[in-house]
Protein backbone atom coordinates (compact mmCIF):
# COMPACT_ATOMS: atom_id res chain seq x y z
CA UNK A 1 0.00 0.00 0.00
CA UNK A 2 1.08 3.48 -0.81
CA UNK A 3 1.78 4.56 2.72
CA UNK A 4 4.12 1.85 3.83
CA UNK A 5 6.75 3.50 5.89
CA UNK A 6 9.73 2.04 4.17
CA UNK A 7 8.59 2.86 0.71
CA UNK A 8 7.92 6.30 1.98
CA UNK A 9 11.43 6.70 3.16
CA UNK A 10 12.94 5.24 0.02
CA UNK A 11 10.88 7.50 -2.14
CA UNK A 12 11.73 10.53 -0.04
CA UNK A 13 15.39 9.69 -0.23
CA UNK A 14 15.12 9.26 -3.96
CA UNK A 15 13.33 12.57 -4.20
CA UNK A 16 15.83 14.29 -1.99
CA UNK A 17 18.69 12.78 -3.93
CA UNK A 18 17.16 14.04 -7.12
CA UNK A 19 16.83 17.49 -5.64
CA UNK A 20 20.43 17.55 -4.60
CA UNK A 21 21.91 15.68 -7.50
CA UNK A 22 23.94 18.60 -8.74
CA UNK A 23 23.71 22.37 -8.78
CA UNK A 24 23.89 22.22 -12.55
CA UNK A 25 20.87 19.98 -12.60
CA UNK A 26 19.03 22.53 -10.58
CA UNK A 27 19.97 25.16 -13.10
CA UNK A 28 18.84 23.03 -15.98
CA UNK A 29 15.72 21.56 -14.47
CA UNK A 30 14.99 24.50 -12.29
CA UNK A 31 11.61 25.02 -13.84
CA UNK A 32 10.47 21.64 -12.65
CA UNK A 33 11.51 21.98 -9.05
CA UNK A 34 8.80 22.58 -6.51
CA UNK A 35 8.06 26.15 -5.69
CA UNK A 36 7.36 26.23 -2.07
CA UNK A 37 6.11 28.69 0.42
CA UNK A 38 8.61 28.85 3.18
CA UNK A 39 6.25 30.63 5.49
CA UNK A 40 7.75 33.08 7.90
CA UNK A 41 10.73 30.84 8.48
CA UNK A 42 14.02 32.63 8.04
CA UNK A 43 16.40 30.01 9.19
CA UNK A 44 15.78 26.37 9.92
CA UNK A 45 17.00 24.64 13.08
CA UNK A 46 19.31 22.62 10.86
CA UNK A 47 21.11 23.12 7.60
CA UNK A 48 18.71 23.01 4.66
CA UNK A 49 20.56 20.23 2.86
CA UNK A 50 20.63 18.20 6.04
CA UNK A 51 16.93 18.73 6.56
CA UNK A 52 16.11 17.62 3.04
CA UNK A 53 17.75 14.32 3.65
CA UNK A 54 16.95 13.76 7.27
CA UNK A 55 13.79 15.54 8.34
CA UNK A 56 11.81 12.32 8.35
CA UNK A 57 14.25 10.63 10.68
CA UNK A 58 14.35 13.60 13.00
CA UNK A 59 10.59 13.76 13.11
CA UNK A 60 10.20 10.05 13.67
CA UNK A 61 12.76 10.05 16.43
CA UNK A 62 11.19 13.05 18.05
CA UNK A 63 7.67 11.68 17.82
CA UNK A 64 8.65 8.52 19.66
CA UNK A 65 10.55 10.43 22.32
CA UNK A 66 7.72 12.85 22.88
CA UNK A 67 4.90 10.37 22.93
CA UNK A 68 6.53 7.51 24.74
CA UNK A 69 8.89 9.28 27.07
CA UNK A 70 7.33 12.68 27.43
CA UNK A 71 10.38 14.52 26.15
CA UNK A 72 9.10 17.82 24.91
CA UNK A 73 12.00 19.65 23.36
CA UNK A 74 10.89 21.85 20.51
CA UNK A 75 13.86 21.85 18.20
CA UNK A 76 12.73 18.94 16.06
CA UNK A 77 9.05 18.93 16.88
CA UNK A 78 6.48 18.79 14.13
CA UNK A 79 4.49 21.48 15.87
CA UNK A 80 7.40 23.87 15.59
CA UNK A 81 7.94 23.00 11.94
CA UNK A 82 4.33 23.92 11.31
CA UNK A 83 4.58 27.13 13.32
CA UNK A 84 7.45 28.41 11.18
CA UNK A 85 6.60 26.97 7.82
CA UNK A 86 2.86 27.51 7.61
CA UNK A 87 2.18 29.43 4.42
CA UNK A 88 1.30 33.07 4.86
CA UNK A 89 -1.46 32.66 2.31
CA UNK A 90 -3.19 29.53 3.54
CA UNK A 91 -1.89 29.46 7.09
CA UNK A 92 -1.11 25.79 6.58
CA UNK A 93 1.79 23.56 5.58
CA UNK A 94 -0.36 21.29 3.45
CA UNK A 95 -3.53 23.05 2.38
CA UNK A 96 -2.52 24.07 -1.14
CA UNK A 97 0.01 22.52 -3.45
CA UNK A 98 2.51 25.30 -2.88
CA UNK A 99 2.51 24.90 0.87
CA UNK A 100 5.72 23.86 2.50
CA UNK A 101 5.18 20.14 3.04
CA UNK A 102 2.75 19.58 0.20
CA UNK A 103 4.92 21.07 -2.53
CA UNK A 104 7.95 18.84 -2.03
CA UNK A 105 5.96 15.78 -1.19
CA UNK A 106 3.81 16.02 -4.27
CA UNK A 107 6.96 16.67 -6.30
CA UNK A 108 8.56 13.54 -4.88
CA UNK A 109 5.24 11.67 -5.02
CA UNK A 110 5.48 10.69 -1.38
CA UNK A 111 2.20 10.47 0.42
CA UNK A 112 2.13 11.76 3.96
CA UNK A 113 -0.13 10.56 6.68
CA UNK A 114 1.04 13.03 9.32
CA UNK A 115 -1.93 15.24 8.54
CA UNK A 116 -4.54 12.59 9.14
CA UNK A 117 -4.03 13.34 12.81
CA UNK A 118 -1.74 16.35 13.19
CA UNK A 119 -2.92 19.90 12.63
CA UNK A 120 -1.48 21.51 9.51
CA UNK A 121 -1.85 24.95 11.02
CA UNK A 122 -0.30 26.52 14.07
CA UNK A 123 -2.61 26.86 17.06
CA UNK A 124 -5.39 29.29 16.31
CA UNK A 125 -5.00 31.44 19.35
CA UNK A 126 -2.43 31.49 22.08
CA UNK A 127 -4.21 29.07 24.31
CA UNK A 128 -5.10 28.53 27.91
CA UNK A 129 -5.21 30.77 30.90
CA UNK A 130 -4.49 34.43 31.13
CA UNK A 131 -0.84 35.20 31.44
CA UNK A 132 0.12 31.85 30.01
CA UNK A 133 1.77 32.10 26.62
CA UNK A 134 0.77 29.68 23.87
CA UNK A 135 3.76 27.58 24.60
CA UNK A 136 5.17 27.67 28.04
CA UNK A 137 8.45 29.55 28.22
CA UNK A 138 9.78 26.39 29.77
CA UNK A 139 9.31 24.64 26.49
CA UNK A 140 10.89 27.34 24.38
CA UNK A 141 14.10 27.59 26.29
CA UNK A 142 15.82 24.31 26.05
CA UNK A 143 19.56 23.95 26.26
CA UNK A 144 19.47 22.34 22.83
CA UNK A 145 17.97 25.41 21.35
CA UNK A 146 20.66 27.49 22.90
CA UNK A 147 22.95 26.18 20.23
CA UNK A 148 21.07 27.87 17.45
Amino acid sequence: MARLANWLRLAVLAGAAALMAAPSLEAVAGADLPKLERGKAEKCVEDTQFMRRNHMDLLKHHRDETLRQGIRTTKHSLKKCVECHASEKTGSVAASKDDFCASCHSYAAVKLDCWDCHATKPGKKPVQQAGQPATSPLMASTPMEGKQ
Binding site: M1, A2, L4, A5, D113
Partner: peptide
Protein backbone atom coordinates in the same frame (compact mmCIF):
# COMPACT_ATOMS: atom_id res chain seq x y z
CA UNK B 1 -8.99 1.27 11.14
CA UNK B 2 -5.58 1.70 9.52
CA UNK B 3 -5.24 -1.18 7.03
CA UNK B 4 -2.39 0.77 5.41
CA UNK B 5 -0.35 -0.02 8.50
CA UNK B 6 -0.40 -3.77 8.01
CA UNK B 7 3.38 -3.63 7.92
CA UNK B 8 3.28 -2.20 11.44
Amino acid sequence: GRPDRLVV
